[in-house]
Write a protein that binds this DNA or RNA. Sequence first.
DNA 1: GCCAACGTTGGC
DNA 2: GCCAACGTTGGC
Length: 160
Amino acid sequence: MNYWLMKTEPSVFSIDDLALAKRRTASWDGVRNYQARNFIRDDMQPGDLAFLYHSSCDVPGIAGIVKVTSKAYPDATAFDKRDHHYDPASERANPRWFAVDIQLESKFRRVITLQELRAHAKDRLNELLILRRGNRLSITPVSARDWRFILTLNGADERA
DNA sequence: GCCAACGTTGGC
DNA sequence: GCCAACGTTGGC
């Protein structure tokens, strides 16, 4: 069982969108970065938990927790010519891109802001990849230690 | 909108 | 394999 952090732009897909989705479940597709693809394809397992991080918005930060509920499967958006994520190089017989299903586990009562995470970057969260300079990966692993510490921040682990 | 820090592409 | 050009990400 692994911990992750998954980024999304709330203007495109937010934690509230996930809350309103059928069975509070969505396909995490559209990933077009090989490192992130490898995490999905090779390392993610059903039951893994991930922080859902809102980026490119007014208050960037962690909005809640999602659970991985499927194994990796070929990303169908790569096969769809009309889809923004269409990739002609990905063939059905040999898919290049993969997706997993995620289900909303909990929405935090407030966003744990990037600013707040940064305040702990030098001590408690010195392993957290999202705080590393230049990191743009949309999916990053989180250590169990960092996971637990983030949950203690201002009681943000209370379920909404 | 700016810009730093990537990743990708393609000519050579 | 090098590397310049270009595209993307994402905080500010």
